[in-house]
Nucleic acid binder design. Structure first.
Lengths: 225, 225
DNA sequence: GTCTGTTTGAAACATACGTTTGAAGCACAT
DNA sequence: ATGTGCTTCAAACGTATGTTTCAAACAGAC
């Protein structure tokens, strides 16, 4: 055939294995044997393991960032001048993520975990790649957040964005395991959409919490309320 | 001498390198050369690399869990019957962490990052070790959380605890990188104490947010506020 | 069919890893 | 001083990694 499916098989296998085990802990041999292709195929088609990692992210992130830009366009058009609220902005983001065409039922969960790993594992090349490649939708989201929380100082906002990112990446990345626990302990079924529906109010409330104290209280005098 | 300092030199070096680079990405040769000891010393004193990892955690976590139990004891004594509030519980935790005797100025920051990595990197042996060794203070913290948020359904509380854990683990696990960014972009210096002081109100507010909708709104009708 | 450019295949490459070995070094009690 | 128990050391072991090589297989154009 004119263009084999080797490339996609590698990407599928790599995406899943990276999400399960992390980047350093996943070898090219695991990937190629799961994908049922020759070991050399990775270096032939992608050039290196790092380039493969970039390709895995690119395959999801490029269409996603287009979807996200559209969602932001529509949101800003609907608001005509007045900046969108925090809830609207967060919903635009999560809706875009959830509505992405998914390769399989675990699609979004896998990718959230990959994003979390990208920030967590000290893969300098990945951070650099993501920041260079997708700086535009990222900055736009940041701008919307800033306009939606004008009461926050830049430093407060910076940290709270990290908190939001952490809560989201961590939860989504382990949502399979968490859903299992929940099903066994409380007998409840949960979808990714429902998790998002619980997450957004949590994030919005945290984001809009009263200003933090700049310094923790004296150790011998913890606040009583 | 009766007992050399080789063991501590290894632990110091390992702790720092693990925090900087992760577990898989740190080799025994990096550790022993930073500690200026022979390569074989790790396997001689600890048995294996995994056992070394456990020892690094044990050196901090064992005294910490004692400190934490005391803090909880004192808190419950001070509250005489009525359950401690959410803020009190969270503060007891962070205060215990911050007040731990630190080997160097980066002590607590390094350790927070290690804890984050423990959850993030899929190191099965580490998770198992931590859960077995420190289940008591963990369950106690969970019980306090439950008593401090009686208004939440079990399912809501479950998810929001995951959100808190995620925000904390993620932020702390990348706190070095985040502090760097902040220093370069806004010229601000930050201590772990300050991060904790910002994190606690965020978590408390999120935890006590109004009940989430059980189902997200129809995709074509995002909420306007 | 024959040529041409691309893709696959099995094997090897060099390097790095965690671990093991066995001799040497050392402090200390006898 | 001599033996003893622990510790250090240089060197090697076996295995796994990312990458390279080069011949074979393949598809499409002429």
């Amino acid at each position: 055939m004119a263009q084999s499916d080797t490339v996609d098989r590698i990407l599928d296998a790599a995406e899943e294995l990276f999400a399960e085990r992390g980047f350093s802990e996943t070898s090219l041999r695991m990937i190629t044997s799961k994908a049922k292709v020759n070991l050399a195929a990775v270096n032939y088609h992608f050039g290196s393991k790092n380039a493969l990692i970039h390709a895995v992210f690119g395959r999801f992130l490029t269409p996603f960032s287009a979807t996200l830009e559209n969602a932001f366009d529509e949101l800003e058009a609907r608001c005509k001048g007045t900046p969108p609220t925090l809830n609207q902005t967060l919903w635009a983001l999560t809706e875009s993520a959830v509505r992405m065409p998914q390769r399989n039922e675990k699609g979004i969960s896998i990718f959230m975990r990959l994003l979390g790993l990208a920030y967590t594992q000290s893969q300098g090349h990945l951070r650099k790649f993501l920041e260079q490649e997708y700086s535009q939708p990222f900055s736009r989201f940041m701008r919307l957040l800033k306009e939606a929380t004008p009461q926050l100082s830049a430093v407060d906002r910076y940290w709270r964005i990290q908190f939001m990112l952490g809560a989201t990446a961590f939860t989504m990345s382990s949502s399979d395991a968490l859903q299992d626990i929940l099903r066994n302990k409380l007998g409840v079924e949960t979808t990714v959409q429902e998790i998002a529906a619980r997450l957004v109010p949590f994030l919005a409330a945290g984001m809009q919490a009263q200003d933090a104290l700049l310094v923790p209280p004296a150790p011998d005098k913890m606040p009583v309320a």
